[in-house]
Computed example of a mutant assay.
Amino acid sequence: MDKKDNKNISYLSFRLGDEVFALHVGKVYKILEMTPVTEVPRSPDYMKGVINLRGKVLPVIDTRIKFGMSPTETTKSTCLLVIDAEIGEETVMVSMLVDAVQAVMKIEDDKILPPPSIGNRYQSDFILGMTKVDEKFVMVLNIDAVLTSDDLIDLKAINAARQTAEKEEAATN
């Protein structure tokens, strides 16, 4: 009998509104308290701006908007999940704005049920499956499907705009 590595079945749960989502802990780089976000002009509505994490500029995605919900209202439990997402052939580090991080939970693969047809409320290609924890459904995300190649183009444009702004600022100082 071979034992599964516990890390393979560990998921981080977080809340968006009344809904609970989970993503594989292997995708989570860091959890940050809310920090000031620098807005980037002409970015998509779900792109709140950028933050600086140890010299790396990371885009901040309002996960609620990305999932078709109302924008996030910052509270003391609002935080940023810094994740590694596979977009096309590239691995991109981004930060996701979430209402609250809840817990690390173990979810066996056989406990993840296929997602039901849930209409337009959520784009179901984000949803890997559903599981029940303490009598409440948790949506398990395919985080790589949350961001698309269009998002990667937007991220590159945002980084280019930021670099141009930094050069202009340095030239005027």
Rank of each mutant, 00 (worst) to 15 (best):
L128V: 05
T131Q: 01
R121W: 15
I127V: 13
N159F: 13
M69L: 08
G55N: 10
F137G: 04
E108D: 04
Y46E: 02
V94D: 07
E169Y: 12
M139E: 12
G119S: 05
D5Y: 05
R162M: 14
I87G: 01
Q102I: 07
K156M: 15
Q102D: 09
D99M: 07
V25T: 07
V20C: 01
K27G: 00
R64N: 03
T78R: 08
L16D: 04
S77I: 13
A170Q: 00
D150G: 09
D125W: 11
P36I: 02
M69I: 05
M1H: 09
K136Q: 14
G26H: 01
S124R: 13
V28D: 04
D2V: 05
N120L: 06
P114G: 06
L23W: 04
R54G: 08
M96T: 13
D150K: 14
T131I: 03
A85P: 00
V82C: 05
G55W: 14
V20K: 02
R15M: 14
D110R: 02
I112E: 09
P44C: 02
V101Q: 01
D151L: 01
N142F: 01
I31L: 03
E90N: 15
E90G: 14
I61Q: 04
L23E: 00
A157H: 13
E169A: 12
L152C: 05
A100F: 05
N8R: 03
I31N: 06
K76P: 15
N120S: 07
I127H: 09
A145K: 11
L155R: 08
V20H: 03
V138S: 04
M130F: 08
A103H: 10
D99H: 06
D154A: 13
S117H: 15
A22I: 02
A160M: 14
G88L: 09
D144F: 00
K132E: 15
E86T: 03
K66Q: 02
M47E: 04
T72R: 13
S13R: 07
M130G: 00
P116I: 11
K4V: 01
A171G: 12
A170H: 14
E33C: 07
G88P: 12
G26Y: 03
A165T: 00
L152D: 06
K167N: 11
K7A: 05
I127R: 12
I65C: 02
